[in-house]
Nucleic acid binder design. Structure first.
Lengths: 340, 340
DNA sequence: TCCAAAAATACAATCGATTGTATTTTTGGA
DNA sequence: TCCAAAAATACAATCGATTGTATTTTTGGA
């Protein structure tokens, strides 16, 4: 079982006594090679088990047909549906996709960007980690000339497009829904304020309070990383507050579920004692008991649109580049955790 | 905003009036370059925003430090936990990971293998799609000399190692558990028989029936793709069977959940009328009501072990290669869907 | 048959980094 | 100061494919 050296176009050329450039052109179906020769080359390539070396090809052509995708965590339903949208669109256009997860760590995100640049990807689609509070790696990518684009979790970097949902509206809808269901003292679980999405969801929360003339109290906004454990801890904190809390809007489903489990153990009834709304519509939210009201984000569509925009930018010959902020609609899905 | 040409070692060499080979050695921290020169080169590289071109480097070195991972679907919790294990181990050893999903389609799996080979990955970790009933692409990879290894969903290819769980035992445990909880007429949802894992889970089911002298009836084994919709349809079929079914062992959680939802709508009580056991321990199974008894697979550990074995094979200098079949233990997690 | 135009093929440079060998420079002991 | 050995650096070939230009072969009309 030897690792035989891989066949190259030179091996094919030698076997047929022709030049490697002709082999290359034949394999790329160039009109400059006669059909007869193409047939001979293809059949010999097949016989020798030839497999194009994309490292060499891409190096010479100074481009790749790979786009990199960086998400915080592939296991989140929202991100995996975005990835499906990306893959479908990219695939149709002949691009490959490299999926990477930052696991919410800035260090990993920086490393990933470095690796993608070193591999000379054609472009990058990116949803930043919760720790991302400095942008050197992204500015570096920009100066490098590698096109990239934010989806969902974005940063304010001049000249970079993004595909987002209206988080202010989402936060507003969630909060208004709680108010309309009779909640007066509503806690909000928020994430790192470096991320616009959390800032905006919080802004939506405040906006809804204002509309209904409910005073905003900053001690009702609990900041965390929004993991399940954070939700449980938030729930505990919430019970210790001086006000009787009757509503909870969590900036993601996972933390909402952490809180639900904690409440369940404490004998607190949902939605009767506390009504709860999450964000992102994880599959788990539909089956948990009671089912969790949440904000649905069109992940697949975000993936499709992001990819289309990125590919446009990659293929743009001119240096006139239009920066676009695409904002998609989210929608409230009403379930049992808030209905009363 | 121009896309400036990227800096190369030649640019650095020219700027410092030294040879590119010295720059290359300095950047690789070779002992053949003086510290003084290294400092000058590093600082100039930094100044010019140099970023190594891995395409060129890998081409020259005839190796990459990237391993490819092919899973049916990244959104399945089992696979994303395997991926976490893979990434952690690979990262420690200085390898990058390309994650790809076949979406259960043979065609996509073939394309992915082709792309990974063309990109000259150092090795591949693979869990095959449900459609994979012919192995040309895998044999091609083998003949190519690219090391690879199966985890979980494997095929019988001589000379290829695999990291698996004991699916026969898992199927046996699940079925025995139902029997011990008083079930007499147990249906089994199975997947494509081309995949050993489903054949083995079925074998475990049969083995448990035999142990308890319950006659095996092939009409109680329903084959499908084990998606949620398949579970619902299976549940419907099951209700139309002449026997009164009192137990269900599904070869994955998703189909079990599809069935649970159908039963719930039909007013059938779980576990009183039908006790249910799934397979894989998806997070959703813990929160669904009633919570789903299932077989837990050590995904993270599977990822770690697979990667270690693959890297061993990649770094093996000799051509003596030991083929290994590593079998890990699964464990039954007893929950409400089967307890009575 | 001859020859210009077209078609097919060969030649040679190149992408950016690496690496074995050759050459130059430095070191330090006599 | 001199010189051999060691250290540092330069030279040149190479990985495999691509592509602009040069050359050879073929075509087909007179």
């Amino acid at each position: 079982m030897f690792v035989e050296n891989k066949t190259t176009i030179h091996d094919i050329a030698k076997a047929l006594n022709i030049d490697a450039s002709t082999v290359s052109r034949a394999l790329n179906n160039s009109p400059r090679v006669s059909q007869k020769t193409k047939d001979r080359i293809l059949s010999k390539a097949n016989e020798l088990g030839y497999q194009r070396n994309l490292l060499a090809s891409n190096l010479r052509k100074n481009k790749t047909n790979t786009i990199g995708v960086i998400v915080p965590r592939i296991s989140r339903h929202f991100f995996s549906s975005v990835i499906s949208g990306i893959e479908e669109t990219a695939y149709d256009e002949g691009y490959n996709v490299i999926i990477c997860q930052s696991l919410e760590q800035l260090k990993r995100e920086q490393d990933i960007v470095g690796t993608l640049l070193a591999n000379r990807v054609a472009g990058v689609l990116l949803s930043v980690s919760m720790e991302t509070n400095e942008y050197d790696h992204l500015l570096n990518m920009k100066n490098n000339g590698t096109p990239f684009l934010f989806f969902d979790r974005h940063c304010d970097i001049e000249g970079i497009s993004s595909v987002l949902i209206d988080d202010v509206q989402g936060g507003f809808d969630a909060t208004e829904h709680l108010i309309l269901n009779g909640c007066k003292n509503i806690v909000h679980f928020s994430g790192p304020q470096e991320l616009s999405i959390y800032k905006n969801r919080l802004a939506g929360y405040i906006k809804a309070l204002e509309k209904y003339k409910i005073p905003y109290r900053s001690e009702l906004v609990l900041h965390s990383s929004l993991m399940e454990i954070d939700g449980a801890e938030g729930a505990k904190t919430l019970l210790s507050l001086p006000h009787r809390i009757d509503g909870l809007f969590s900036a993601n489903d996972i933390a909402a579920i952490g809180a639900m489990k904690y409440f369940r153990n404490e004998g607190i009834r949902i939605p009767d004692d506390i009504a709860i709304v999450g964000f992102s519509n994880e599959p788990i939210s539909e089956v948990i008991d009671p089912s969790l009201t949440t904000i649905d984000q069109p992940g697949f569509q975000i993936g499709q649109i992001s990819t289309k925009l990125l590919l446009e930018e990659i293929n743009k010959s001119s240096n006139l580049k239009k920066v676009k902020k695409t904002i998609l609609k989210s929608s409230l899905i009403e379930r049992d955790s808030s209905r009363r």
